[in-house]
Simulated scan of single mutants.
Amino acid sequence: MDRLPSSNRSIAEVLRQHAVDTGAELMVMGAYGHSRLRERIFGGVTRSVIEGPRLPVLMAR
Rank of each mutant, 00 (worst) to 15 (best):
residue 60 A to K: 15
residue 27 M to P: 02
residue 50 I to Y: 01
residue 19 A to V: 07
residue 26 L to M: 10
residue 18 H to N: 12
residue 13 E to C: 14
residue 49 V to S: 04
residue 32 Y to G: 10
residue 21 D to C: 05
residue 55 L to R: 12
residue 2 D to C: 12
residue 5 P to N: 10
residue 61 R to T: 13
residue 36 R to H: 04
residue 23 G to R: 03
residue 50 I to H: 03
residue 45 V to D: 00
residue 38 R to N: 11
residue 50 I to C: 09
residue 28 V to R: 14
residue 46 T to M: 02
residue 1 M to Y: 14
residue 60 A to W: 10
residue 10 S to D: 07
residue 57 V to C: 04
residue 34 H to V: 13
residue 7 S to H: 13
residue 24 A to I: 05
residue 6 S to H: 15
residue 48 S to D: 08
residue 9 R to W: 11
residue 33 G to M: 15
residue 56 P to G: 04
residue 48 S to W: 07
residue 25 E to C: 09
residue 23 G to L: 04
residue 51 E to F: 07
residue 16 R to K: 11
residue 27 M to L: 10
residue 32 Y to V: 03
residue 51 E to W: 07
residue 47 R to I: 02
residue 19 A to I: 06
residue 28 V to A: 13
residue 49 V to T: 01
residue 54 R to A: 09
residue 50 I to E: 13
residue 7 S to N: 14
residue 46 T to S: 03
residue 20 V to K: 06
residue 40 R to Y: 13
residue 58 L to T: 07
residue 22 T to V: 14
residue 43 G to S: 03
residue 50 I to S: 10
residue 37 L to C: 05
residue 3 R to D: 09
residue 53 P to T: 05
residue 40 R to W: 13
residue 47 R to E: 04
residue 20 V to N: 14
residue 61 R to I: 11
residue 1 M to R: 06
residue 54 R to Y: 12
residue 47 R to T: 02
residue 27 M to Y: 14
residue 33 G to A: 12
residue 44 G to H: 01
residue 50 I to K: 03
residue 44 G to Q: 03
residue 59 M to E: 12
residue 56 P to F: 04
residue 10 S to L: 11
residue 30 G to D: 00
residue 46 T to I: 07
residue 59 M to Y: 04
residue 46 T to P: 00
residue 43 G to A: 03
residue 16 R to S: 11
residue 4 L to Y: 00
residue 13 E to H: 13
residue 43 G to Y: 02
residue 34 H to E: 04
residue 52 G to N: 10
residue 52 G to L: 12
residue 24 A to G: 06
residue 36 R to T: 03
residue 3 R to A: 11
residue 43 G to C: 02
residue 45 V to W: 00
residue 4 L to P: 01
residue 38 R to D: 14
residue 44 G to S: 06
residue 8 N to I: 06
residue 22 T to Y: 05
residue 46 T to H: 01
residue 43 G to D: 00
residue 49 V to I: 03
residue 40 R to N: 11
residue 45 V to C: 00
residue 24 A to K: 15
residue 43 G to R: 03
residue 2 D to Q: 11
residue 60 A to F: 08
residue 56 P to H: 08
residue 39 E to N: 07
residue 32 Y to I: 03
residue 59 M to I: 08
residue 47 R to P: 01
residue 45 V to H: 00
residue 36 R to W: 00
residue 17 Q to A: 11
residue 12 A to Q: 02
residue 31 A to K: 14
residue 49 V to R: 01
residue 20 V to P: 08
residue 44 G to I: 06
residue 53 P to L: 04
residue 4 L to G: 04
residue 52 G to R: 06
residue 54 R to C: 15
residue 59 M to L: 11
residue 24 A to H: 08
residue 52 G to H: 07
residue 42 F to V: 06
residue 4 L to A: 08
residue 5 P to W: 06
residue 56 P to K: 15
residue 22 T to K: 01
residue 1 M to T: 10
residue 55 L to E: 02
residue 51 E to T: 14
residue 41 I to F: 01
residue 2 D to S: 10
residue 30 G to L: 02
residue 25 E to V: 13
residue 5 P to G: 08
residue 12 A to L: 01
residue 6 S to M: 12
residue 21 D to E: 07
residue 39 E to R: 10
residue 5 P to C: 06
residue 35 S to V: 04
residue 6 S to T: 11
residue 38 R to P: 15
residue 9 R to P: 10
residue 36 R to E: 00
